[in-house]
Design a binder for these strands. Structure first.
Lengths: 219, 219
DNA sequence: CCTACCGATCGGTAGG
DNA sequence: CCTACCGATCGGTAGG
């Protein structure tokens, strides 16, 4: 197919007043259209993976034409990064409201860990939780630059677990080295994305109980 | 500039009669070329993911031209499946030689679990271990038909853990429900693919010790 | 296993 | 945000 048929009717006398919108920013804040794109992108990235999801898929899911996502995001990578950043932001916010709630510091270390685990599961498996799983399982698709930027947030999130784990290690309820214990515990939690189905089997509560009784000695 | 570089030694009189080889089979067993394709595919699938790896990448890594992988595998999907099947086959073989070794049944349940964990880590993180990680992290890319076929092998592998875990549960060394415990434990182990680096940090031995002391009560 | 392709698709863009 | 594209790439194949 060559360039032969140009429809002559598409000639508007009134051009756009000030040219096209700036393209130098990664995204524009045009309200809910951008949010809709993010939510559908998160869902599709989670279900099919980043590479197997086309920008056309995302546009169609949001009710747009194929080129329109690029009005809101300058590239597919930028969309992925926005999804992941939103995921980390919500995970961090959730964790902070947990640890800063009144009475948290009065709890036993075991109960503190239980709250952290429950919050982690909630943001990972609860309703509307597509952003964090995408961050966990698709970060390989991210350019190195942005991966490092995300690593800062991840490091902050992981460091929030250390005081509790140190305390449990000191009291003998956690015997494994704290650094390895944190990696193994978070691994067990993160892997639930692969098999947990809220509509059948165990509840989030039972899952949290099982994790606690698996990790802690309390004897 | 094409028909002059045919090495005369590959011209076997009994080789191929004429025409092209049958295409009805998924693969042909032509020895090490097929194995080389599999190994390079496993490595690339693991590092970049299935969708981000092109059949041209694989061909180049194996020193072939872009169309040649399709002489050995009828599709990119067939290559992925072959990698995964090889992964599961080696994992099962490893696990069976562990549990059927002389003296295994005389060990304590805790020591039996330790052997299973060590074998799992070996096949997951040891030298030349690209096949199992691909199976763990890329099965979403597999057509449903073949995914179900793999699920049989996976179920068999997972069921091998149940006797040991049941025994530990009965003796109080494992308090979590066995079904959930198995999922959480294997999750913790499988996630090590994301962070374990054999060239720095802990050794496989230390990793196994940490996992055992994290999961078991031994009190 | 190579050469020489093809049809389809995809990320992205010009211009409005 | 839509229309109408393009250049590049990719899985796969015909024929030897």
């Amino acid at each position: 197919m060559k360039s032969d048929v140009v429809p002559p009717e598409v000639e508007s006398p009134v051009k756009r007043p000030r040219g096209r919108p700036r393209k130098t920013v990664d995204e524009r804040d045009d309200g809910n259209r951008r949010q809709a794109l993010l939510a559908h992108a998160a869902q599709l990235f989670r279900r099919k993976g980043f590479d197997a999801t086309t920008t056309r898929d995302i546009a169609a899911a949001a009710g747009m034409q194929s080129g329109s996502p690029f009005y809101h995001f300058k590239s597919k990578d930028a969309l992925l990064y926005a999804v992941m950043e939103e995921g980390m932001r919500s995970a961090l916010a959730r964790q902070l409201t947990t640890t800063q709630a009144p009475g948290y510091s009065d709890l036993s270390a075991a109960d503190q860990l239980r709250l952290l685990v429950a919050a982690h599961f909630s943001v990972l498996l609860g309703p509307g939780s597509d952003f964090v799983p995408v961050m966990l399982y698709e970060s390989r698709a991210l350019p190195v630059r942005q991966r490092k930027s995300l690593a800062l947030l991840i490091g902050k999130y992981e460091s929030l677990w250390l005081p509790v784990l140190n305390s449990l290690h000191a009291s003998g309820q956690l015997r494994a080295p704290v650094r390895l214990a944190r990696l193994l515990i978070l691994g067990a939690l993160n892997w639930t994305v692969q098999w947990f189905d809220p509509k059948k089997g165990a509840s989030l509560q039972e899952l949290t109980d099982a994790a606690m009784s698996l990790f802690l000695k309390e004897c």
